[in-house]
Structures are given as structure tokens and as C-alpha cells.
Design a protein around this nucleic acid. Structure first.
Lengths: 365, 365
DNA sequence: CACACTCTTGCAACCGCTTACATCCTGTTG
DNA sequence: CAACAGGATGTAAGCGGTTGCAAGAGTGTG
């Protein structure tokens, strides 16, 4: 094996120096199969043999080659989590939830960030799929067909998204919307705006329908605005659109967008909630200490991550998997929502100090 | 092969249905070696044979099993990037830079988030190292010894960190600090505070020494404060500490912390930069549109990520690797730094509306 | 004491691909 | 036209594990 030794010389592949089950087998005076079983099925090895093997293994610093293990077994003990925006605290919570659960189950989680693009999402899945046992897709921007195609060649679970009969975990968007619209209605709002996120967002589409339906039932006019980039920076134009639309309250696609809206409204001297109420989605880290603190529909992000992993784990184990798990959403009312401007009993009584939009310094953005 | 077909029945491992080089070989009437060569070394295959193989491969939807490929070759074409805080925009930029470069080179990047803990960092490396060709460690919290140990069993590159002769890419912290201290000195500041990050931060230690040295040279007193959690929320106590220390300017461990300080100072009615100047590090996304816009030492984050990948790629290829690459830092002056309070020509001339710290409402934190 | 049965262990055939070496074929060259 | 160089293929031995099957060692039963 001239090649082998040749490779070992280069420090580029230090791996080749590592002990294998054969080294251990020779040292311990057993067969490689026994060594393998000592790790893979300890119950099948007599206790004292096991001890001896483990001792030798420890002495040699043996660590199984996951690749070699994966080849015959077809299982890599690795799961992939694909998210559109790694910096969004909502996804971050999903990530930590997923990671936690994966580690508990003895799996390694690999992360892929796709930056909202369906192309790079598909590419990421394509690239990762052959090397993992399953894939969790969070807020997938892919169409149902494409998802379905991926689903029948790997163990797939959806998070924040439903598609056909593919296992999924979502929050109850419709109910969340109903709570929001009810809340705003009871505060006297009759014209509200929905600041939409990416067109490819399943949750966005669902909410759009739900808000129109809920609005219709309660006699609240709904303006569909957007789409906006669901990040803080997207709040600039979203806020401007809201002001332009003449609504008294807005539902932002997510908290990041809502926070951006809050900032822009402050810059333009529009008081929240005095002149405009703002509602977000997700209840991300920071939603409670931005100014004003954000009223938002809390998503159990951590739980979403955990559950998504549970779903693919079940699928990996060949167990029956529920097609769709829906987690409850609940409205968390903070300071960014208040009575509609015109519903106040008397203007003078207003506790809000109202600035006109003209105070905005020319250079500020 | 009763086992094989048995596995195929369970949808849990749909992989087994995939075409292999043997299927293609049979279809195309060549040997499996030729098929392998068609993909791995096309030049060694006669053009028309190659065509035929490629056609069959396409027809069968062949996709190489990366695991099987990795086993004999010892190369997985995968790189791991380990970062302490995935949500920090600075790391996010490093991530995108690294990802870009990795994809260009035909590698897959897997991400691990370690949440500032050296234990979970070590665990992540341990877990990932056997399945990747190399590892990039960003802002590692590990001690030099541990890093060295990892380095001699895998291709390692450090980002934002130096340790022994291990390949690394960093920004010129010392020079950056000198620019900051010079800038503050010229604005009249004579007492400045350094709001430290994690004790395990290499950059933090380096900066501490640099700021003391630079301060000594220029006659600026330096107060070392901290450590603080280098996230926005950590700015609360950092700001309080700065106020307590009676300094007129602070250098925060990173922009996140600086932004938190800005918020807290605003809450406590301390005007920036009128009463306190604030400098951050990294120049993250958002540093330019927070209020006031943050003066910060810009790190070429994207470039750091790219370079780190370049380093391990060179190491993987067995090429000589420079031990240490230092990228220039430059001070970006925005609105959060200004003349020191006491250096003003006359109080009345001050354009700052100064509020006393006592306006802080009791419950606010 | 033979026989069946269980528990350990070893043998050897994969997993899907890479690659050194052997073989075959074709075109040159003397 | 034989000898030979060189390119295109095939053969087969791994890579480091897993696992079905069989053999051997004990143990309990009739």
C-alpha cells in the first residue's frame, strides 16, 4: 500500500493515523466483529470481553469513523436544519430547540442558511440530503411540489409550513390572527393593515386569508400591504406604506419587521400606540425590551424546533409520523397596541404627546 | 441480498433505491471503474465513452454517494465553521464569506453554534472533525493547548484568534485600538473605559493590553470594566458600570454590546456623545442606522470568513499555509463619539440637551 | 450421557466508490 | 512487419465499519 503510506506523510490527512477496530481487535485478541459489537450492541458481548475491548480502545484513543459506520448502515446520525435567515432570533430559537433535541437523541445537527432564496434552499437540501438521515425545513420558500419531491427521497419535516401530507409542525396562525384582530377591534380599530412578508411564505399566505376573513366577520377593513423584506431594515418602507394607507393599526409579517416599523414611525414622529398600533409575530428575543415593547403573537419557537426534530426522528426510526402538528399561538399584549386614535373619549384627555411628522430632520433615514 | 431489499421496503431509508456506479456500468456496458473515472478524472476516459456514461447516469438520475466517496479517498469535501454566536451579525458576515468561498471551491460548509461556551465548542469540534476535511474556528474560546491538539489531527484555521503557529486570520486589533484611543484623545477624552467581553476572548485580552499601552502613551487613563456578556442585553450593566466609573468615553467589546450601552444610556437620560462617547468593534449590519449611529472599528468580516476558508483549503491541498494573516482594521467615525464634556469651550454653547440621570423611572431596567 | 438450547464469538460478505496495476488495442517507428 | 509506446479499459484490493450466519462453549433436561 504505497499510496496509503504516501498519504500519511502529508499532514493534510492526519486521519489516516487513527486507530481502527482492527487495531483494537489485534490488541485485545478478538475479532473485529466483536469490537464493532462492543460499541454497536454491547449486550451481545460478554462483560469481561467488553471491558477488555473498551480498555484497549481507550488506550489507543479509538474513535469510530462516522463515515465508515454510515456506509454499510446507511445511517449517519446527522440531521440537517435548513433555515431562511439564521440571524432572525425566531429561527435562532428554533435552531437551539432542534439542536437540543438532536443531541439528546445522539444526533449531530448541521445547519444551512439559505437567505430567503428558494434556489439556494433547494441547493442546500440537494447538497446535504445525501449525507444526513433527515432534513428539517423551517419556513420553506419552496413550492409544494418541490417539497414533496424531496420528501420522498429523504425523511423530511416541515416547520412553520404545511405541504400535502408531509409531517409538519406549525403554530396556529388562524387562531393567532383571530386573537389579534379581535384585540384590535376591541380597541376600536376599524382599518388595519397587513404588512406582508415574502410572497413565497406559506404562513404569510395563510395569515392573509385569515386576517381578511376575521376582518370581514368583525367589520374591520383590511389593507394588504407589501411584500416587504422581513427584516428590521424592511420596516422603513413598511411603515411608510402603513402611514400612506391611513390605517390605525398594522400586523407585521414578523417581529423583525415590526421593530423596523416601530423605528421608522418614531423617526417620522408617529406615536405608537397613540397614532398607530403595531403587532408583530413570533415574540422574538428583544420584542419585550424594544420601545415601545411589542405586542406580538408568540410562537413557541423552541418547541417548534424540538418537534420538527421529533418528527424526522420518528420517520428515521420507521415509526408512524403524524402529518401535521399544530402548536397553539397566543397573543402577548405589550405597549405597542392601544386604542384607535378616533375612538378616544376626548382629545384633550390623551396621554400621548403627539409630534407632527415634520419634525423629522431632513438627513435622517 | 435479503437484507438490502428488506431495507428498501421501509421508507425510512429511501436512499437504498438510488442508482450506483454499478447500475450505470451495466447499462452503459463498461466497468464501474470507468464510470468512477468519468466523474473523478474525465480526462482518462475516451470522449465517446464518457458521453455514453454521462447519458446513462443522467437517465438513471445518478448522484454519487458522498459517504462512499469519502471513505476510500479520505476527503469529504466538507468544511466546518464553528462560531460562538450565530445571531451576531459580525459572525453572520463571517459565515456568508466562508460559505461563498467554500461553495466556489466545491465544498459544503456545515455550521456549528456553540453559544460562547468552550465546552460546547470542544464538543462541536470533536463531533464534526471526523466528518469534515477541515475546521474553521471563529473567536474560539478554547485555550491554546486545546486548539493545538485539535490542530494536529485536522486541518484547522483560526478566525479572530491566534494561537501558536496555527494558521489564522485576524484584524489588526492593536492598530485599531490605537486609532480609537487617538481619536478619543483628540476629542479631549482623558478617562476612558474598556467594556470587556468574555475573559476567554483572545481579541479581548489583546485589546486590553493595547488600550492600556496606547492610553499610557497619550496620557489617557483607562478603566477596565467587565466582563460583560457581549450581546445587546449585556449593555445594560455595562452602561451602568461606565457611568459609575466616571469615564467620558467607552470602548465596548463589540457592536452588540455598544448598541446595548447606547440603549441603556438613552434610558438613563445620558446623552451620547454629549455626555458619553461610545465606540464599538466589528461594524456590524445596523451599526450605521442605530441612534446615534455607532463609531466603530470596522472588521472585514466577510473577508475574514473567506480567508479562513482559504487557509484550511490550502492546508487540505497540502500547500504551505501562512501561519498568520492580519487584515487591516479601520476606525469608522459616526455619531456616537464627540468632544469630551469638560473640553467644551463653553457650556452654553453646547448643542446637547442634557438630562440628569435621575430621570430614570424606578422600574426601568 | 446424548440432545437441545442459549450465549459468545468469528467468518466473510457487503456498503459504493477510488485507484494501482494488469491487460488490451491502436498507431508509430525502424 | 515486428517491436514498442501509450492511451483506454478492466480487475480487484482496499477504505472502516456492520451484520447474517455458523461454529464453539456452556448449561439444563430427559
Amino acid at each position: 500500500m504505497p499510496d496509503r503510506s504516501g498519504r500519511g506523510d502529508r499532514r493534510a490527512v492526519p486521519t489516516s493515523a487513527r486507530a481502527t477496530i482492527y487495531d483494537i481487535a489485534a490488541e485485545a485478541g478478538v475479532s473485529s466483529a466483536t469490537v464493532s459489537r462492543t460499541f454497536g450492541a454491547p449486550a451481545k458481548v460478554r462483560p469481561d470481553t467488553r471491558r477488555r475491548v473498551l480498555d484497549v480502545a481507550a488506550r489507543l484513543g479509538y474513535r469510530a469513523n462516522p463515515l465508515a459506520r454510515a456506509l454499510p448502515s446507511g445511517r449517519t446520525s446527522t440531521l440537517a436544519l435548513v433555515v431562511p435567515a439564521i440571524t432572525n432570533p425566531h429561527f435562532f430559537d428554533i435552531i437551539t430547540g432542534a439542536e437540543q433535541r438532536a443531541v439528546e437523541a445522539g444526533f449531530t445537527l448541521v445547519l444551512a442558511n439559505t437567505g430567503q432564496s428558494d434556489l439556494s434552499e433547494a441547493a442546500a437540501i440537494e447538497r446535504l440530503e445525501p449525507m444526513v438521515d433527515g432534513v428539517m425545513l423551517a419556513s420553506s420558500r419552496l413550492d409544494d411540489d418541490r417539497i414533496a419531491r424531496f420528501a420522498d427521497r429523504t425523511n423530511l419535516a416541515l416547520c412553520n409550513r404545511q405541504a400535502g401530507r408531509i409531517p409538519s409542525v406549525t403554530t396556529d396562525q388562524v387562531n393567532g390572527i383571530e386573537q389579534v384582530v379581535g384585540h384590535l377591534h376591541s380597541l376600536g380599530h376599524r382599518r388595519i393593515g397587513l404588512l406582508g412578508g415574502p410572497e413565497t411564505s406559506w404562513a404569510g399566505r395563510l395569515r392573509r386569508r385569515a386576517v381578511v376573513a376575521a376582518g370581514g366577520r368583525l367589520g374591520v377593513t383590511v389593507q394588504l400591504l407589501g411584500p416587504f423584506n422581513p427584516i428590521v431594515a424592511g420596516g422603513q418602507s413598511a411603515a411608510d406604506a402603513a402611514i400612506g394607507a391611513g390605517v390605525t393599526a398594522v400586523l407585521a409579517h414578523n417581529d423583525l419587521l415590526a421593530i423596523g416599523v416601530l423605528r421608522r414611525l418614531a423617526d417620522r414622529g408617529v406615536h405608537v400606540p397613540g397614532e398607530m398600533s403595531v403587532v408583530g409575530f413570533d415574540d422574538i428575543f428583544g420584542a419585550d425590551f424594544c420601545v415601545p415593547a411589542l405586542t406580538t403573537v408568540a410562537a413557541p419557537s423552541h418547541e417548534l424546533g424540538r418537534t420538527a426534530v421529533d418528527l424526522v426522528l420518528a420517520s428515521v426510526a420507521g415509526q408512524p409520523v403524524p402529518a401535521s402538528t399544530v402548536l397553539p399561538a397566543h397573543l402577548t399584549v405589550r405597549e405597542s397596541t392601544g386604542p384607535a386614535p378616533d375612538s378616544r373619549t376626548a382629545p384633550g384627555q390623551s396621554r400621548w404627546r403627539t409630534q407632527s411628522a415634520q419634525t423629522l430632520p431632513p438627513g435622517s433615514r
